[in-house]
Design a protein around this nucleic acid. Structure first.
Lengths: 386, 386
DNA sequence: GCTTCGGATCTACACGTGTAGCGTCCCACC
DNA sequence: GGTGGGACGCTACACGTGTAGATCCGAAGC
């Protein structure tokens, strides 16, 4: 393209200065190559690339740009990061990237970071403390400008993590404040209360809880909120089952609940447990919501497209992501700061809403796609051919 | 820990050599700091860190390790990468990371790369060619050692991508060979035939296809396989609807199919379209599989936990990931090489299998969790408390 | 005409690392 | 006793970049 002699000004046989036996076999153009081709010094190229601290004559700039284009020059990020103290990179440590909630969270974080011109290094600790320590070491070595953790282990101050000194850190998906750390999370306790209260309004009285073990010994606010709502409704405590935060966990949890207790509703502490529970119920022929209602916490796409669609407390993931990045970007905020965002009750079919006669208020949610978030996949555009 | 005087040998007020107004405000320990504290030259530290090209006396090594530990030293990856020609990093460009298939694929790639001591830089092009070009520039700037693409746009040789010269590239999720590129993918055509044949065995004769537009104009092998299987069964072509590869797309596609055509089965070209189609059917009171059977392509967890569970052609994601990395790691393999992996028919409920009397052969799949892949979420371990 | 000044460019250097080149010391072997 | 060689350590330098300091030159001000 752009009629330049094709292959005239190649990167030149560089690296023939002294000894040093070719550490890099690849042949990417370097700043010096561009400078040589444009007939200027290497500083000028830098000024052009960065709209540098010194002005460059229009004609010279054009020559440099032309040379850059011809060589396909891309500045070496390693060298840049080395020279500046900062990579424009943030590290994200997720406990389970296969959970769609974290998947969506990650996606929103990436988008938010992109808006700031930063990029994310994403790693999955798979709930393994040793792996997490390695990951942190690696991220520190990569000179990340900040660190985001969903992993519960992050609360432990392990000896190696003294290296974090100086690197701003924010814990996301955090139910409450943690001493010495800045944290972001949804009001899970309030969400649990809201959901249970909603079930009570539907006349449910024997509400079981499917929940898991958090990495730490601290009490799960969802459990607390569930208990609180039951008591304030004058109901006895319901059965609890603790299973992993997975689809299989929810499946097993619902089975256990059905076998050993008499429940007319199940509160699953995240969406995938809820989906697992639904499957267990359906397989046994238990009707949802007629026999047993199900609600869950998260409100991801998966809760919207399962059958029946799950009533859920939806976390405001885009807001959470934006808040986390904002907090990370202002390292002078006090350690111990916790930002709690509310959740939204999304009423769908699994709790009993809209089964008999659809409440017009919830019709939009019950009838998919939602109109507002429906992309070009809207029903109107689907044409059948043959 | 490890009784060292706490805060005796700090990184020292470095960077006070000449002018240069403090480019890096952070205070991470550097190799020189470790050397100073250990009373050795900086080369020796390097030898210890890398099991260097020169031997180090046991006693000296111990002193260095102690100093490293005390300072929390982590070698600067930017400097390393600059000095070596190679970062141990691969770039992955995904078209839609929110699709659980790509989510799981990414996960498997990360695991496989980890086994090779490499890490992955993951970026989501969101089906946007301009964004993809930026991403590629960025990844090249990061000096990645290799590039993996799921994005369809990657097939276009855009002028900027001449920078890819020298960087090994592999296209994953690729239905067939592409000239000049090395590619990996499942035998989608064969999978489609297999699924349609299975539906025919269940007595279905009017099988609609829900599919999308691939980035390129080339025909989708799933469509071809679907058509082939119909013809070889002596059936007429069924209706086709083209919608985005999303849940909403599948929802709208199934709606359109139901409204304008008479079908007794739907073939969704990926899992999330299949899930969307299921919801559309359930909402209308169409019974699955009794009235309309549904099958899909991918076989992710989501197809396993929806209701009814989706019969699917399961892609062998771990094998695909391993193959892709292997191909990427052997850049001398011929350009144009294509590796095609078979898919496995996973018979679940949505096609009609195991509805009347569960076929003992498919019982394992129909009864969840699968036993073999059930982690510690197995039903036996769930105990109910109150 | 001389100085001043700012635009435009070049030269030089540091960022932290990996390693070649060059000692030094000590032990084993002839 | 001389000597070769291996173990061990240090100094020096390059990787590609960003930018401060120095240089050059033309125009403006006296």
């Amino acid at each position: 393209m752009s009629g330049g002699v094709p292959g005239s000004g190649e990167p030149s046989t560089r690296r023939s200065r002294r000894s040093d036996p070719e550490p890099a076999p690849r042949a990417l153009a370097t700043r010096a190559d561009v400078a040589r081709l444009a007939g200027v010094s290497s500083a000028v190229v830098s000024y052009v690339v960065n709209d540098g601290p010194r002005p460059v004559a229009a004609e010279t700039r054009a020559r440099v740009l032309q040379a850059m284009d011809q060589l396909g020059y891309v500045p070496n990020a390693s060298a840049r990061n080395l020279r500046r103290g900062s990579t424009q990179t943030l590290g994200l440590v997720v406990a389970d990237s296969q959970n769609p909630f974290f998947g969506q969270y990650t996606f929103e974080l990436v988008k938010a970071a992109e808006r700031q011109g930063k990029q994310l290094l994403i790693a999955d600790s798979r709930e393994d403390a040793a792996r997490e320590a390695d990951i942190v070491d690696n991220l520190v070595a990569q000179q990340v400008d900040g660190l985001l953790f969903t992993s519960a282990f992050a609360r432990v101050d392990r000896s190696r993590s003294l290296r974090l000194a100086g690197i701003p850190t924010v814990l996301i998906d955090c139910p409450g404040p943690v001493v010495g750390r800045r944290t972001v999370g949804s009001d899970a306790g309030g969400a649990a209360e809201m959901l249970v209260r909603h079930l009570v309004e539907h006349g449910r009285t024997r509400i079981g809880l499917v929940i898991g073990h958090r990495g730490f010994g601290d009490p799960d606010p969802r459990e607390h909120g569930w208990r609180l709502a039951l008591r304030s409704a004058g109901l006895p405590d319901g059965p609890i089952v603790r299973v992993p935060f997975t689809r299989e966990g929810g499946f097993a949890g619902a089975q256990a609940l059905l076998e050993s207790a008499d429940v007319d509703a199940i509160f699953a502490s995240n969406d995938i447990q809820g989906v697992g529970a639904l499957l267990a119920l359906q397989q046994r022929g238990v009707r949802v919501p007629d026999d047993v209602a199900v609600v869950s916490f998260d409100g991801t796409e998966e809760s919207r497209f399962c059958w029946p669609p799950l009533t859920a407390a939806r976390q405001r993931i885009p807001d959470l992501a934006a808040t986390a990045l904002e907090l990370l970007g202002t390292p002078d905020t006090e350690a111990g700061t916790h930002v709690s965002l509310p959740t939204d009750l999304v009423r769908r079919r699994s709790c009993g809403c809209g089964v008999a006669e659809p409440d017009p208020g919830v019709a939009a949610e019950l009838q998919l796609p939602d109109g507002e978030d429906a992309g070009d996949g809207g029903s109107a555009s689907a044409a059948v051919a043959t």
